Amino acid sequence: MLRLWDAISRRWLYLAGALIVAGLFGAALYLQYVLRQDPCPLCMLQRVIFIVIGVLFGLAALHNARQIGARIYAVLIGLFAIAGVAVALRHIWIQHLPKDQVPACGPGLDYMLKNFPMSDVLQELMHGSGECAAKGWTFLTLGIPEWSLLWFVLLGMFALAVGWKKN
């Protein structure tokens, strides 16, 4: 198995990471537009983080950097994956609050983006709202934020493994 890992170039591995993120984003769009699972503010923030991770994987594949560059890409992806883990954990925490402790629903994201300063929008996004507490689609007993958490961890670890892979 290690021989196979060593035989695959970093460029192909970074491309695989970008394709995985594209698949995850496609699944999110399927949930939203086919299964009518409207994303909450924390879901939207997680999507943005996934997009950034996917773009970084894609840039790393296109750039085909050597050792130092590959490690820089890996660390950047890892940092965004950690941010994604933090947002997903916050989302999971809100979903597991008792009903009487769930934050009140605030204004919609579109309204906030049009009328609030960006610092206020980010603060509201991180606090979550009542709509973030709704448990929607599940697969193998895990909801969307649990799956996001798992994928952020896997993608971060994968990026670091690729970045520190031998030539």
Rank of each mutant, 00 (worst) to 15 (best):
P117R: 02
S119V: 12
P117V: 06
A104M: 04
L122C: 04
C132M: 03
D110T: 12
G108F: 03
L109E: 11
P103K: 00
Y111Q: 06
D110Y: 05
V121Q: 12
G130M: 06
L125I: 14
A104H: 05
L109V: 03
G108T: 15
G106S: 04
L109H: 11
V121D: 02
Y111F: 14
D120F: 04
C105Q: 07
G130D: 07
S119T: 12
V102Y: 01
L125A: 13
G136L: 13
L109K: 06
L113P: 09
G106N: 02
H127M: 11
N115M: 07
K135N: 14
L113R: 13
M112W: 05
V102K: 01
M118Y: 09
Q123N: 08
D110R: 12
N115F: 03
K114R: 07
G108I: 01
S129H: 03
C132L: 06
H127F: 02
P103A: 00
Q101H: 09
S129I: 00
Q101L: 07
H127Y: 03
Q123F: 06
M112I: 01
L125H: 01
C105I: 07
C132I: 08
G128A: 11
G136K: 15
G136C: 09
V121Y: 06
L113D: 08
M112D: 14
E131D: 07
Q123T: 13
A133T: 12
Q101E: 13
K135E: 13
K114P: 04
L113M: 14
A134M: 15
N115A: 05
K135H: 14
C105Y: 02
W137A: 13
A104D: 09
G106V: 01
A104L: 06
Q101W: 00
G136Y: 12
L125S: 07
Q123A: 14
L125N: 02
Q123D: 13
A134Y: 15
P107I: 04
A134C: 03
L109N: 03
A104E: 13
K114T: 09
F116G: 00
W137T: 12
G136S: 15
C132K: 04
Q101R: 11
M118V: 15
E124Q: 12
G130S: 06
L109D: 11
P107S: 07
V121H: 13
G130Q: 09
K114S: 14
M118E: 10
M118C: 00
S119N: 13
L109Q: 05
G108R: 08
S129N: 08
D120S: 10
Y111D: 14
G108P: 02
K114C: 00
E124F: 04
E131Q: 11
C132E: 00
V121P: 08
H127T: 06
G106P: 06
W137H: 14
K135G: 10
G108L: 05
A134H: 15
V102T: 05
D110E: 12
G136M: 13
S129G: 15
